[in-house]
Design a protein around this nucleic acid. Structure first.
Length: 431
DNA sequence: TCTGGGGTCCTAGGACCC
DNA sequence: TCTGGGGTCCTAGGACCC
């Protein structure tokens, strides 16, 4: 029998899907809620609620970093700014070139957190299986929470209620797994509800360019283009084993995603962090290791404080440098014993810095990250540790934490530590 | 007036042990 | 004197996400 089967027919899709997973695939009812232009919308709502007359969402406006701190990039844009071709991540300088009278506003993370929590609390009325994927995105597992209603109706209700009750708009993606729900919420914006069920994949998803697929970034796109893979359809129809050979695990993942396959669960139980980091672009390039050590200490204190608040200890310390030429380096090392002590962590961090730093380097960014975190109560006690000194250090750390909590972070400083604005002064003076 | 900061996961290569 | 693989741990760097 000769059958005419086009490559992208629904039949081949279904066939492939069941060939791989058979009947075992459990269909779940998933929503993805994505705040439209989150940082800009939230600042707009905050301003309106505090007496401001103009809605900055109606302006040609962006939320930007701070150019005086050399972090002048676009973090969010209004629809009108988008019309000028302004994109997230580009420099404010470049954005201004595209639009002469661009309005630039500074962001405020306190405001973001507040509105993010309001959204979360509203969503909790629909299901307690919510994964906070980022500050402005949530996955909802609605599988046993539909109450004789349809998933689409719930999505529309959430979309309407957020707008009416919280004052900003969201896109809601409706699907049977997380990947498809996320792809759906990304379709057309703002203030929309989109479905992406299995049978809709060929029409709604496969015509999109591969760059639109979740987990395909700017390094992978040109590689796929060289292989004549340009649309998600091309990728879905590509040979899976060839992709695995070329891209390893990532190849398998992107083939599955192109075919709409994703069996991951909504992670509604908040997991403990696996690493904690803090980094800063310096106000000006620094070529002096003593000054870098001062900054490193300041960064490390915050990291260790956050670690202790989690009741965890770290096994690995990692120091990161970026030169003025934008070259990135990092060195990491295991700690002798898992610890949350600022003193132990900074000791290792300084060793790593001196390993990496060479005379004549101009450093633009410095960062510290602690890794391989484990819960404190599960930690192994050191057989040879100096218990008395350890106890003393622990008490010191906890007193500092207490003061930080009471009077705000950075309320007290250890001897030898300079705040970053003082570093600015030093660097300026030397110039 | 160029180019943020906070994460997670993966890979390749070297050291080391059996 | 020459020649093995398998396994684990560690580190540096890179890719991706928001």
């Amino acid at each position: 029998m000769i059958a005419m089967i086009t490559e992208d027919s629904i039949d081949t899709y279904e066939q492939r899907f069941y060939n791989i997973f058979g009947e075992s695939v459990m269909e779940r009812q998933i929503l993805h809620v994505d705040v439209n232009n989150a940082f800009l919308s939230w600042l707009a709502v905050y301003k309106l609620q505090n007496g401001e007359k103009v809605d900055i969402r109606e302006q040609v406006a962006v939320i930007g970093g701070d150019e005086t701190k050399r972090s002048g990039i676009v973090l969010a844009k209004s629809p009108k700014a988008k019309q000028f071709g302004i994109v997230t991540g580009e420099t404010l300088y470049s954005a201004r070139q595209k639009c002469r009278n661009l309005q630039v506003y500074q962001g405020d993370f306190k405001i973001y957190r507040e509105y993010s929590n309001k959204l979360y609390n509203l969503l909790l009325q629909y299901t307690d299986k919510i994964e906070r994927f980022s500050i402005d995105e949530c996955f909802l597992d609605m599988t046993n929470y539909l109450m004789n209603d349809t998933l689409l109706n719930k999505a529309k209700e959430i979309n309407r209620r957020v707008k009416n009750e919280l004052g900003f708009t969201v896109n809601v993606g409706v699907a049977n797994n997380k990947l498809l729900a996320k792809m759906a919420s990304d379709f057309t914006k703002p203030d929309r509800v989109h479905t992406l069920f299995k049978e809709e994949i060929p029409i709604k998803m496969w015509n999109l360019p591969i760059s639109e697929l979740f987990m395909i970034g700017k390094k992978t796109v040109p590689k796929l283009y060289n292989m004549k893979i340009r649309t998600i359809r091309d990728l879905a129809n590509a040979d899976k084993n060839m992709l695995i050979k070329k891209f390893g695990k990532h190849g398998k993942l992107m083939w599955e995603y192109a075919n709409g396959i994703d069996n991951s669960e909504v992670q509604y139980i908040q997991e403990k962090p696996k690493s904690i980091g803090n980094s800063v672009t310096l106000p000006m390039d620094i070529a002096n290791i003593e000054q870098l050590e001062e900054v490193l200490l300041s960064l490390t204190e915050q990291v260790a404080y956050r670690l202790r608040k989690q009741d965890m200890v770290a096994n690995v310390v990692c120091v990161q440098l970026r030169t003025k030429e934008f070259e990135d380096f990092s060195h990491q090392a295991k700690l002798d014993n898992p610890t949350s002590s600022t003193k132990e962590i900074i000791k290792k961090a300084k060793q790593l810095l001196s390993e990496m730093f060479k005379q004549g380097m101009f450093i633009r960014l410095i960062g510290v990250r602690i890794d391989n975190l484990v819960p404190k109560d599960g930690m192994q006690l050191s057989l040879f540790g100096n218990t008395k000194n350890d106890e003393k250090q622990k008490k010191l750390d906890s007193v500092i934490d207490l003061l930080n909590e009471k009077y705000g972070y950075n309320s007290i400083t250890r001897a030898g530590k300079l705040k970053s604005d003082e570093i600015v002064k030093i660097v300026k003076k030397e110039k």
